[in-house]
Structure formats: C-alpha cells, structure tokens
Design a protein around this nucleic acid. Structure first.
Length: 641
RNA sequence: GCCGAUGUAGCUCAGUGGUAGAGCACUUCCUUGGUAAGGAAGAGGUCAUGGGUUCAAAUCCCAUCAUUGGCUCCA
C-alpha cells in the first residue's frame, strides 16, 4: 500500500506504508540521512526510524531545529546515564531532560562519591559508549512489566514516575546495556554524539521539593561536531568576562567586606556616581510623569507589618526584629506600607487621584544565604519604587502609563532582550498564599490582561506566581552567565487599601477604596547597575559613565594646562579627571582604555599653545584636535537623553 | 536553608609536609615622552578564622565564616 507524505515546502510524495523518516531521508540523500536526528510526523516529534503507515506531513529534524537539538541532548542524557551505570553500578536515576543549553541527569549515588575530579573519567566513558554506535531501541511496556523491571533494579524514583503513568502509555528505550523509562523520542544511535563536556554538578531536590531527598544533578552538553563544542566553550569564556562581579571589581564600582556582611554591598565612588546619575534621571522622568517624591524611615513597628499582611508571608525573610521601648521594630523589607500610611495621613478626594508617591527607598531583606549573587541578589537594596493610588476607572490608563514608562526607560538603555511575565494566582491557594478574594483576583487579572493585549505587549502568563496582594507583571532578563532574574516589576494591589482602611471621597461624597499599583521599572540600584554592567560589558554610554573624560598630559610640563582643561570641563558638568602620573602617553592611554573611560584628551605642547584638546574615543577612534569649548559641546550633545 | 566546589599580597594566580612566590597595581628615584605597557629600587601576607594530627602544616583532618555552581525561595 502506498501513502502520501507531505513535506514542509508543500511537496507531496508517495511511499510504501511502513517507511521511516530515516528511509525517506536516505532516499533524498545520504548526507541528509546522516544528519537526521528525529522527525516531526503530523506535528509530533518521533524517532526517525519509527514507521509511518498512513498519509502524513513530515519534517525531518536536524541539529538546526530546536527540537532536533532537544532530542540530541535528551539522548545524550541517556548516554550519560549509561556511562554512569557502567562506572558506578547501583546508582539510581531520577530524571534526565534536555535544557536550553545541554542537559542534566539527577542521580542518587547512594554511598558512592562523584565530584569534579571524576568528570574526565565520565567523559571518557561516554565517548567510548558513543563510539559503540548503539541504537536507541523503543519498546512499549505494560505497567506491570515496567514496575517489575524497576523493582528488580531497586530504583524508587523510576517506580514513582511509573506510578503516575497509565498502562498503555509506558515506553522504554534501550541503548547498549542501559534501559530507561522514557517517552522519547531519541536520535537513531549514540554515534551521532561526537563531542562531550561534563560541565558541573549540583544538588537538586527530587521533584523540586525541599521535603524530598537531594540528588546529585550532573550538567553536561554535547555536540555533533567537535568544533561546535570548542565554540561553545569559547562563548562561555567570553560571557564570564561580562560578569558584573568581575567588571564591578575591575571598574571599581562596588565591593563586599566580611566585616560589613554578606549581601551588603559597599558602593565605591564610581558606583556612587552611577547611582546619582540614575537617580537624577529617574527623578526627572517621574516628575514629568506626575509622581511626587516622599521619604520614609528604614524601620517600622511590627503592628504596621501585621496590618499590611506582610509579616505572616515574609517574616522569615525579614531581618530579625529589634525590641525598643516595649515595642517590636523591623527593618523595612518593602516601602509599600510606609507609602500607604502617607496616603492615609490626609483625607483624600477623588480630585487628588491618581496620587503617585515615589521614593528611592532603602530596604533590607534577609535573603537565604544560598541565594546571594553579586549585586543581583543582595540583602540591602534601594528600589526605584512608587505606589500609584487610583480609582478603578483610572486603573487601565495608569497601568498602561507605567508600561509606557518601562518602554521609555528600556529604549534609553537599549534593553531589548527580555520577557514580560504576567503572574496570576492559583485559586486552590486562596486564603493560604493569596488574599482570599476570588472576584477581585479575576477582575484585576482581567484588567491587566486587557492592558497587555490592548497595548500589543508580548507576554507569557504564568499561574501561581502572583504577589499575595494581587497579580503582577515582571520583566525577566538574563545575566551574562545565563541566570534569569526579574529586572523590573509592575504589580496590582487590591488588598492593602482594605487592610490599611485607605479611602478617598468620590463625587457622590462616599468613601471608596483606591486600587494601588506597585511599580519599580528601574528595579533596585543594586540589580540595575549589576545588569547594566553586563548589558554594556562595562562600556557605559557617556551619559552613564562614572568617569567620562581622562585628561592625559604628555608630560608634567603640561600639567597646568591639563588643570585648566579639567576645571573648565567640571564647570560644564562633565566628569573629568587628570592622569598626573609620570608615565608616557602610551601607558596612560592603555590604562584609560582598560578603565573603559569614554573619552581621552591628550594635551601637550601643541594643545597648550592653541587652547585645544586632542580627542581619542574609547576603542581607539581619533577625533583630532578641537577647542575645549567644542569638545564640551560635543559631549553635551552626546549625553542628551 | 540544602548538595558540591573554592578561599595565598590591593588584583590575577603559582606553590602536595621542611625559611611564603610571580605578574600587574602601589611608593621612591631616574626618564619629560604624542595615541594600548620606559627603567631601577622598595614596601606589602597571622596563607579566611578556630581547633586537631605532626619534630615540622599554606599543604593532612575537623568545625566555623565567606564566595561560588545549582536546588529551594523571591514582597
């Protein structure tokens, strides 16, 4: 019997029923067949050697397809497991999925030890098994047989997984001497794997729950070509150079000190300068957008956090309380309750709304020790915070205005690689993780969704990630080394107005609850500057650079002229300094280049005589000689934002 | 918090049981120079901290602290 196969380009060809994707590939070219990792039949990814017995659409998946890569890495995880079982008999296997870059396998090593010193051995074994060209053989297994197989192997994890599956949907895959519970699909054989790198190990709780046993997770990556692995490793090296922790040290932005404490950054003068620049920018922008600035203390009494509802949710991650005059005080971990108190301090009319209260508020959060990460996750932080109190009718416009503000900021910084994550509640956790008000949850979530859709903002919606007081939008970005974190946030709060008994008088002279928007588009100084360091790889645009201009006298004979230039630039609000060392120009240039100073002004006999400066841009571009005033003008123009 | 790794001069790092090292940075002197490293000398360390083993510990063992790769968490 013959069947019709439709290819992605629309071509339809006839084949004998029972043909496999691999057969079809071979029919097209041997070269293609060598590269086929899996196939997409009627939209479902399957093994390339699965037989096709009815008319179907077919896409051959290779390394160039994401699904091809995923299949390749998934099979590589099985290869890793096969090697581990050979080297460490009796280890138990958790799960071994592909990830964005490579794959991992969670292993229970029992009494056996596995560490970085064993990576070479494991790689060697994997290479050996890869060369064996073992086919991945699929078999359908009854639940009873599956249970009996893994009972014999005494693997509690696989048994637990099988338990959740139904008879008839269980498949095994075998390659060489290794058999695994797996839904597949897999690449044709292990020989496709040509380059292997075991990257690191980590503890990982079984099924992601702290209550379960911690397994050893082994991360690795594989490629069909040696050269691709080398390229990948090189890229990792490059990424490390952008790491804000490395750059922050090199550019003297921040430091940590054991006597100050973990997660408590010290801002060096360069970091202090950046903070000032960012604040000035934000304050101006927010003033124009109708925000008013407020200022609140760093501590408050327990009663306020009980009222706000934060304490039961976050007590564990607040610094321990202080006892004073018979009262219990906490260091503030969030600014919202303080701001709510400001809203409530005066009688409010609908005419005052929306009321937008902004503060670069300093907060302290007792983050778990294992969470601390450079500037991205710290225990003292200063937030670009504001709370907008508005009526329900004003909500959409206000929420949209906040999103516009993000867009504006992100454009200034050239931030374009991010994902908007819309977090909603889980109805099953009302009253536990979330304020128990089902109608308001649905209503506000609808409002947010509407704004996102109406503004054409791409987003992903995730359930059960909301704040306890309402849904939120987070802007997710990635650090140089690939760690995901929330940069900015925009949250709806329908709970705290009630808790603080906040109200305004509406047109009909009735009391009404305001809706509250929490927003922090520029995140915290800590996280934002950490992010910017990586984003710009330390090469800040001139307006943001803590030091904008290095004045480099050719010799100390021209120091006086250099001082004239420096004073003039400072008067023009340009951040300039003189390299007064008795070094040659070449050395001073090199050091200014390494310090990533945007402009270098070389001043010597020629310039001193003519009142000029010779301008070199960071990176080497020579802008030639110009009058001091012309240079000041040049910088002014460039730093307008 | 949990599992693993790491901790030596300001920075980057050598140093596997026998007198603490290098490069850069710093200080001083010489050199007074033209677009990515001039020369010389000097100073700088309780080898994270506290115990232990040993004739002897940066080195071996234990604990603590910090950093870190992940996991869990994230107002």
């Amino acid at each position: 019997m013959s069947i019709s196969i439709t290819f992605p380009d629309g071509a339809v060809r006839q084949y004998e029923s029972g043909v496999s994707a691999l057969d079809i590939a071979k029919g097209i070219s041997e070269g293609l067949a060598r590269n086929v990792l899996a196939a997409k039949v009627n939209g479902v990814v399957v093994d390339a050697n699965r037989t096709i017995t009815a008319d179907a659409t077919l896409q051959l998946l290779t390394w160039n397809d994401d699904e091809g890569k995923k299949t390749f890495w998934h099979s590589s995880a099985h290869l890793l497991a096969e090697a581990l079982e050979a080297l460490y008999p009796g280890v138990k296997f958790g799960i071994g999925p592909p990830i964005d870059k490579g794959f991992y396998y969670d292993i229970d090593f029992g009494d056996q030890k596995f560490g970085a010193e064993d990576f070479d051995k494991l790689e060697a074994k994997m290479n050996e098994l890869a060369k064996a060209n073992s086919s991945f053989i699929r078999s359908e297994v009854s639940k009873a047989d599956a249970i009996s197989y893994f009972t014999e192997k005494a693997d509690p994890y696989k048994l637990e997984l099988i338990n959740d599956l139904n008879d008839g949907e269980i498949t095994f895959y075998q390659q060489g001497n290794f058999t695994d519970l797996c839904r597949g699909p897999h690449i044709p054989n292990t020989g496709f794997v040509k380059a292997i790198k075991v990257l690191n190990t980590a503890g990982a709780y079984w099924r992601g729950s702290e209550k379960n046993k911690q397994l050893t997770r082994i991360y690795a990556i594989t490629f069909p070509k040696r050269a691709e692995l080398d390229e990948y490793l090189l890229m990792l090296e490059e990424a490390k150079k952008r790491d804000h922790r490395k750059l922050g040290k090199e550019l003297e932005i921040f430091t940590f000190d054991d006597d100050v404490g973990p997660g408590l950054p010290l801002w060096l003068p360069n970091g202090g300068a950046m903070i000032e620049i960012l604040e000035n920018f934000a304050k101006k922008t927010e003033r124009e957008a109708g925000y008013e600035r407020v200022k609140t203390p760093h501590i408050a009494k327990e009663s306020m956090y009980l009222k706000s509802g934060h304490l039961p949710y976050y007590k564990e991650s607040m610094f321990p309380p202080m006892e004073m005059d018979g009262d219990t005080y906490y260091l503030k971990a969030m600014n919202c309750p303080h701001h709510h108190k400001i809203f409530g301090a005066l009688p409010r009319s609908y005419k005052e709304l929306p009321l937008r209260l902004a503060e670069y508020g300093t907060c302290y959060r007792y983050e778990q020790s294992g969470e601390l990460f450079g500037l991205m996750r710290v225990r003292s932080l200063q937030m670009n915070d504001a709370h907008i109190y508005c009526t329900e009718e004003q909500f959409e416009q206000e929420f949209r205005a906040v999103n516009d503000l993000y867009a504006r900021y992100f454009k200034v910084f050239g931030i374009d690689k991010y994902v908007m994550r819309f977090s909603t509640h889980d109805p099953a956790k009302l009253g536990e993780k979330y304020i128990n008000n089902p109608e308001l949850w649905l209503k506000t979530e609808d409002m947010v969704r509407k704004v996102l859709i109406n503004s054409n903002i791409p987003y992903v919606e995730v359930a059960d990630e909301a704040a306890f007081y309402g849904p939120k939008i987070d802007i997710q970005v990635w650090s140089a080394i690939g760690k995901e974190f929330t940069l900015a946030t925009n949250q709806v709060d329908f709970a705290q107005a009630e808790r603080f008994d906040l109200y305004y008088i509406n047109e009909k002279s009735e009391k009404e609850r305001p809706l509250i928007i929490h927003r922090a588009p520029l995140s915290t100084h800590e996280r934002f500057i950490g992010f910017l360091l990586e984003h710009y790889a330390g090469n800040f645009p001139t307006w943001l650079a803590p030091k904008q201009v290095a004045i480099l006298p050719i010799s100390d004979k021209y120091l006086d002229y250099a001082k004239d230039v420096c004073n003039f630039l400072k008067k023009c609000d340009i951040r300039a300094f003189i390299d007064e060392r008795a070094e040659k120009a070449g050395k001073k240039i090199r050091d200014a280049e390494i310090a990533k100073i945007p402009y270098m002004l070389i001043v010597g006999e020629k310039e001193a005589g003519s009142g000029e400066v010779s301008v070199r841009r960071h990176g080497g571009e020579d802008l030639g000689a110009m009058k001091q005033e012309a240079f000041a003008e040049h910088i002014k123009k460039e730093t307008e934002i």
